[in-house]
Amino acid sequence: MSGAPGEDAGTRRLRRVGAVLWPSFFAAGVATTVCFAVLDPGAIDLPRWLPRLDAMGIYTLGFAAFWVATTAASAFTALLLEDRR
């Protein structure tokens, strides 16, 4: 990802962070919506080592898990697209 001419390092860094975090946030939101439209959090058997969670807790945890996964994918893509100098 090379910046536009005249773009400084700070802007480039912000742009990279934004380009990773925001689309992954968006994708995680969509995935969470679809996932919990099908799955009822009340009907999920969570592993025993997890603390007992109410519906809101499971939604939050689900969203966080999706966001971690999508962020990782976005960040990996950004890394691979990086110019090797």
Binding site: L14, R15, G18, M56, G57, T60
Partner: peptide, 30 residues
């Protein structure tokens, strides 16, 4: 509840950051 408070603060923080600081950068880069 904890989760509700977490989301309230999360969204408040996002508003404060996006509208107060990032502003046009969101449009240009994100």
């Amino acid at each position: 509840g904890g989760w509700v408070t977490f989301w309230l603060l999360f969204y408040a923080f996002a508003t404060w950051g996006n509208a107060g600081f990032l502003r046009e950068q969101v449009c240009r880069y994100m």
